[in-house]
Design a protein around this nucleic acid. Structure first.
Lengths: 178, 178
DNA sequence: GTCTATATTAAGATAGAC
DNA sequence: GTCTATCTTAATATAGAC
């Protein structure tokens, strides 16, 4: 079994229990691997596992969520395609954002750079799409920030209020007005 | 010393280290109290401490952040006053939201009801203000949800990008257009 | 590559003196 | 009300056989 095969389960565990709450015992039980085997795949322990998950998420993000922004079609269509990808990834808001989780964990310093990097790439990609449409760099950047804030805010509210309505409404129909 | 005297330090510790990361040792060191003394004030341990902090925050929220919404003045002025209160409480985004932190902790089930309660009261209070202005209940509710999402999104981005610009811009000038 | 067994550390929590 | 000392549990992590 390749190390990559365990990424989905690790992601699920971190999302469900948080970084600190996803103990090696839980991970061992969920993967069916003994603790020693986990260290065989991830010599750096839990931090190593989280970084491996981030590797996969970063790749997915660039290859799936952001790719519509670089394609042809109207700005509205492209943003909508991105929203649809995010909607699916977060399962309509029933799944939390791992990046937000890692920022509240006891070891957040170990991940903050990568989290910031990804968030900036989201803001920049959306801003670029607006710029191509004739918006000023300043206005485009603000559009990117607004979108990122809306996404994160929708994810937080979906978790807190235990309803998928927020993302469902906002991301499926994003953007309401561009 | 009354138990209430330690609330600010507990809030600060939970914000800085997260719920799981704020260990009794750190709390003991920060408060200057031995572990046994901590259990004297908070017999239920850390969970008890977090609930005590939530008591204080709920009171502050109702008595400070929401009170402008019930006063006289234009809707815009009242919303702006609420934004200013939140801006101060989160120190322009340099401080994270404890409610978001508790939702990603290993013991989130212990707090999820209270977190949802407070978030719903925010949405309802804003919606009520819009209703009084003639908005339909449906549109008012959406306004309340939008505002709550924007606040949480701004807080997340402020943390992730380590800049206070987001909240500073969005909350100080909230609402841009109502 | 996976296991059993174990080491090490630190967490949450309590007993009981003062 | 605060302390020292200690208990119990569980966490991360590793050694070494197969």
């Amino acid at each position: 079994m390749a190390r990559e095969a365990y990424i989905p389960q690790l992601l699920q565990l971190f999302r469900q229990y948080g970084y600190d709450g996803a103990t090696l015992s839980k991970i061992s039980e969920a993967t069916g691997l003994g603790k020693a085997s986990l260290y065989h795949y991830f010599p750096g322990g839990k931090e190593d596992m989280a970084h491996a998950v981030l590797n996969t998420l970063e790749h997915w993000f660039d290859a799936q969520a952001l790719v519509p922004l670089r394609q042809t079609g109207s700005l509205r269509e492209r943003l909508r395609a991105m929203g649809q990808k995010l909607y699916e990834a977060y399962e309509g808001g029933s799944q939390p954002c791992l990046y937000a989780i890692l920022m509240t964990a006891s070891t957040r310093d170990a991940f903050s750079d990568r989290v910031a990097q990804l968030m900036m790439s989201l803001v920049a990609a959306i801003a670029k799409a607006f710029e191509e449409e004739g918006y000023t760099p300043e206005a485009s950047r603000r559009k990117g920030e607004d979108a990122a804030m809306m996404i994160q805010g929708a994810l937080v509210l979906s978790q807190v209020l235990r309803t998928v309505a927020y993302l469902l409404e906002r991301l499926r129909n994003y953007p309401k007005s561009s």
